[in-house]
């Protein structure tokens, strides 16, 4: 009687049935990788120094794929909360609250469905990055382990940010407030991280702050496996730390979401 299943199915139906929402979601990764890959290409600013700033990546696209994947997960996840406000405004929330379902299911259905929505975006982005000229190159191969690291990192990022923004949304009645907050933090979260640039290229204070940004952890973990293929023991420790950090943060936030929502969600 948790209600999580039917509510998640509802979210996904709404996504698949809305052609504009569905198609833009799927085209977005192609745009991002093509545009970001060109716009921020740091090797153009420092000709000759390319391999050192790219941490061993053969080109910039290969370097930023992890960053773009993470940012895309971040952006999609941040909007998970908006549906909660729509449900409150348009009526379905009243039905959910008078049903014997767990109240946290209302929020978790948004979180899970946004994670599901991100998955095809990940696949499309990787394929697009691979196909564009001077695109993604797997110098040291691409194994199932790389796929697992990549998927774990993105899923955890999506869980982290969708739960933060869902909890915020449960306390809001106005759509503009949540859009305001999303716009306030989306670009800072992206640029104050190692998603697009390496720490050596950033102002020292910025690089220091970026160290604590989960977007950096995910971007670096994905980058590590994509650039190096099979990792050394010390590289594995590093990836383990990043993913571990993401997992702990996601776990704590999910728990917090469950507790807060069970008490706080209302009309």
């Amino acid at each position: 009687m948790s209600g999580l299943g039917p509510l998640t199915v509802r979210e996904l139906k709404k996504w698949v049935r809305n052609p504009i929402f569905f198609v833009t979601n799927l085209i977005q990764p192609i745009f991002w990788i093509a545009l970001f890959g060109s716009a921020f290409d740091i090797t153009r600013f420092f000709p000759g120094a390319s391999t050192s700033v790219l941490g061993g990546a053969p080109n910039y696209i290969t370097y930023i794929v992890g960053g773009v994947l993470t940012t895309m997960g971040l952006f999609t996840a941040m909007f998970a909360g908006t549906q909660i406000i729509f449900d409150r405004r348009l009526g379905p929330m009243g039905r959910f609250l008078s049903s014997p379902i767990r109240r946290s299911s209302i929020v978790f259905s948004k979180i899970i469905s946004s994670v599901v929505r991100i998955m095809p975006q990940v696949v499309i982005l990787i394929v697009a990055a691979y196909l564009i000229p001077n695109g993604l190159k797997f110098v040291h191969g691409f194994t199932i382990i790389d796929v697992l690291v990549l998927a774990t990192a993105i899923v955890l990022v999506a869980f982290i940010f969708s739960s933060i923004f869902s909890v915020i949304a449960t306390r809001m009645t106005n759509m503009n407030s949540i859009f305001g907050i999303v716009n306030l933090v989306n670009l800072p979260l992206m640029f104050v991280s190692y998603a697009m640039f390496s720490p050596s290229m950033m102002a020292p204070w910025l690089a220091n702050v970026a160290k604590y940004n989960p977007v950096s952890w995910s971007a670096e973990a994905i980058r590590m496996v994509i650039i190096n293929g099979s990792l050394t023991a010390s590289q594995w420790t590093q990836v383990g730390q990043w993913l571990g950090g993401l997992a702990i943060l996601a776990g704590v936030l999910m728990l917090l979401t469950a507790i807060l929502v069970e008490k706080e969600i209302r009309d």
Partner: peptide, 9 residues
């Protein structure tokens, strides 16, 4: 309830 609660989509 007084308000509509069905999902329009």
């Amino acid at each position: 309830p007084q308000d509509f609660t069905a999902d329009e989509d």
